[in-house]
Amino acid sequence: MKLTLLATLLLAGLPMTALAIEPGPSSPQQKQTEGWLQLQVSGERASANRQKASPAERDQAMQRWLDSYKHPIPEYYDQKQGGSTPGGGSSN
């Protein structure tokens, strides 16, 4: 009986812990990032010039997307395998 009552009180108190978290950005950088994302969503600063893709560009984009499914996703990535960086060093 005591265990059931204790579990009920504990579960009833869980939503109150979420109220302790203050909403909003936690740093100036996060505030600025959220501002930029809000501009993107609202379209407030969108260009007046519509950017349209030509039919050829749309076909190429679709083909790239379809070609991406030709490569199997490996179960594990080999950490030793890799290329080199532009500076000539190895990525290993």
Rank of each mutant, 00 (worst) to 15 (best):
S27A: 03
G24D: 11
W36T: 04
G35I: 04
G43Q: 12
I21W: 10
P74S: 06
I73W: 09
N49A: 06
A46G: 10
S27F: 06
A53W: 15
M62D: 13
N92Q: 15
A53T: 07
R50W: 07
A12C: 00
P55D: 05
T17W: 09
Q79M: 06
S68T: 11
M62V: 02
Q51M: 06
S68R: 15
L10E: 10
L37M: 13
K31A: 15
A12W: 02
A61F: 10
K80D: 10
R45H: 08
I73N: 11
T33V: 06
L39Y: 15
G83K: 09
Q79N: 08
L39W: 14
T8F: 08
S68H: 14
L9P: 02
P15E: 08
G87T: 11
P23I: 02
S90F: 13
L10G: 12
D78S: 03
Q40P: 00
Q32D: 14
Q29A: 03
Q63A: 08
Q32R: 12
R45F: 11
S84H: 14
S26M: 11
Q51F: 05
P72S: 08
R58T: 10
G89F: 13
A12S: 01
A20L: 08
R50M: 02
G24T: 11
G43D: 07
P86A: 10
G82V: 13
S26E: 14
E57G: 02
N92G: 05
T33G: 09
G35C: 04
G82Y: 15
G24Q: 08
P55R: 09
K80P: 00
G24F: 10
G35A: 11
P74F: 04
H71S: 04
Y76K: 10
L37I: 07
W65Q: 03
Q29P: 00
L10K: 07
S27C: 02
K70T: 05
G83Q: 13
Y76S: 01
D67L: 04
I21D: 13
Q51D: 08
V41K: 14
S84N: 12
E22R: 13
I21C: 02
A46V: 06
G43R: 13
R50F: 03
P23R: 11
A12F: 00
S47L: 03
A18H: 10
G87E: 15
Y77L: 06
E75C: 00
